[in-house]
Design a binder for these strands. Structure first.
Lengths: 348, 348
DNA sequence: TGCTGTGTTTGCAACGTTGTACAGACTGAA
DNA sequence: TTCAGTCTGTACAACGTTGCAAACACAGCA
């Protein structure tokens, strides 16, 4: 079933059928009707593969995220699929597991030529990894990292967002605010900016920001948050608030708090980051920084299409997506509402 | 950058380069080395589009799920991506939103010819919708529905699984077991079999299964579960257990129970279905039916590849994936552990 | 009648790859 | 020396599509 068959059926040339299919001008109405009839009768559908071979575009973009099990990325992927669909693009999904080798592989153009562009949400990728890249497939980077590379990069203002979260806690009278999720190694890891924001805001408020309240975790999953929280409590410290670097960590931390008999928010307030749906329906709903996922997705796709058309023009822009703090139960009320707190604070 | 360039560089014919690339036998070692050198120098990578045009296969399969925001499908998608990768296939992700029109569109071969096969997880699709299908792209159906169509169909044994869940509750001394998630309209909807299992098991145990305990919900999301639970409680009924047709409904229900001051599991035990990670980390971890997602994914991909190679041989098998009941806190203890329960039950 | 111009249709080549068929070179045996 | 048989490498066509340029038809006008 190809143009040839339709052409034969309609008694015209292949090219004429092609013209009809592609809505070329200068096709006589009668001819158009005749060819269309043949197309309908045979149920002809163009072969995208051949079309793409000819045109050099596939209509497919790839999205590579660390892990679909993390609802943030699942929700983001949904948003990207929608945004791509608006431009008649289809999304091919890849998972990196957050592992550098896989990230490098993907960024280097694994699957090059099947895809027109790549949206990559890196975790461990280094700037150097992007150097050897053959530039035929445009790349857009997502997330917190600062890259000095010729690729557009989309993220929320992490430092500002983290500061808002901490400011919110300070405003509730919390002063011993732990932060959960710092990375151990590279200063460049996603956690870096959020840690920076935490430190800046505390310092600005004249509140101590001791390293003992900075809790590194292995990964960014619920179990990591639970373990991190346990370690923090085991160290003997009693924070009155926790700023978790993502919602999963926050959820894990709340689980540990619950197990230890500490109440959220009365004993410990908790703020997360990502605004995943899961946070809205726990026993205690989660206050969190909500990045605008739709906006991120739209910006990413638009960015890619821009690089795709206006080729030659170098990319490398830093685009900032909007975010806002969503206040829910996990930070309700101030310390004054904590009946068990020995140290009274001034009233309203 | 094509075979031609490499051939020119190495001073051989295009076909010879092709032979080297494809590891054909009967290529002299010296020649192979020479060509390989040229390939490496130029950094040649084969063009999949052209290859696929020639061979008729694209190496891409599509997975269409209702919603990525539902962790069950996100986790399942991850499993499918892994399973496909094992066979060197890539996954293109589509979302149907659970809407019939989109499901029909996808099943009818939207994107036909870009993909070698389709794995579809339908919600509202009717058997009739599959009749008009052009059979060039193999289709595998996922989920609970019974289709009498020439396509393989993979699901856990829903009736058995539902019965196990209910039996578990009965074993804990619960007798007023509501079920949450029944559909309103078609008897064919995914909920049907789980409802059937609930009814069968109660009847077998001689426990009444009144329709008043069957709570229909709009969708299968957390908010739907929360509303459904609220409606049930508002009706004045006091179930001592809830069998939710998926984990999200269960989570929403637990939220409502929490808001109403009812304790899980002491006052109301809850069982879900899907075993999403979210259920493991709530304040009260969720007992649930755990379908083996890896197995489902592997079976789906294997099924597809089978239809792809052994074409002609009609598909239409019903494949059953394994499942098991995972017991967690939401059903801990029997009714005897409920201090507020006026009606005492016999002790241990 | 012939010429120009506009509008419509067509043939050819090419995108990059691989299957088929064949040509040439080389080996060993008669 | 010749012949068959094997091993290597090559030419050609085809997958289904579209851009380009040429061919064609026809109307209007001189």
């Amino acid at each position: 079933m190809s143009l040839k068959d339709v052409a034969q059926r309609a008694g015209v040339s292949i090219k004429t059928v092609s013209n009809v299919v592609n809505n070329h001008p200068h096709v006589a109405p009668a001819m158009r009707a005749r060819v269309q009839a043949a197309i309908d009768e045979l149920g002809y559908r163009p072969n995208p593969t051949a079309r793409h071979l000819r045109k050099g575009r596939t209509g497919i973009i790839a999205l590579a995220v660390p892990e679909l099990g993390n609802p943030y990325f699942a929700e983001l992927a949904g948003a990207v699929i929608d945004a791509a669909a608006e431009h008649e693009y289809t999304v091919l999904l890849d998972r990196t597991g957050g592992r550098r080798d896989k990230e490098v592989l993907v960024s280097q153009g694994f699957r090059t030529r099947v895809i027109d562009g790549l949206i990559l949400s890196p975790i461990e990728l280094e700037v150097a990894d992007l150097q050897g890249r053959s530039d035929d497939v445009p790349l857009v980077l997502l997330g917190e990292r600062e890259y000095d590379a010729p690729h557009d990069h989309i993220a929320v203002d992490n430092v500002a967002a983290a500061r808002e979260a901490v400011r919110h806690l300070l405003g509730r009278g919390r002063t011993r605010i732990a932060c959960l999720g710092a990375g151990k190694d590279s200063a460049n890891r996603p956690a870096h900016l959020r840690l920076l924001g935490w430190r800046q805001e505390l310092t600005a408020a004249g509140v101590p920001a001791p390293d003992s309240l900075v809790v590194p975790v292995g990964g960014w999953d619920r179990a990591d948050g639970a373990r991190g929280m346990a370690r923090l409590l085991d160290s003997g410290l009693r924070p009155d608030a926790v700023f978790a670097f993502n919602d999963l960590i926050a959820i894990g931390a709340m689980r540990t708090l619950h197990e230890r008999g500490l109440r959220v928010p009365q004993d410990v307030a908790v703020v997360g980051f990502d605004d995943i749906a899961e946070g809205r329906f726990g026993a205690v709903s989660l206050t969190t920084v909500s990045p605008d996922k739709q906006a991120i997705a739209r910006m990413a796709v638009a960015s890619l299409l821009r690089s795709l058309s206006a080729n030659g023009e170098p990319a490398g822009r830093e685009l900032t997506a909007p975010h806002r703090l969503v206040e829910r139960e996990s930070t309700l009320g101030g310390v004054r509402d904590r009946p068990t707190d020995q140290v009274g604070t001034k009233g309203r």
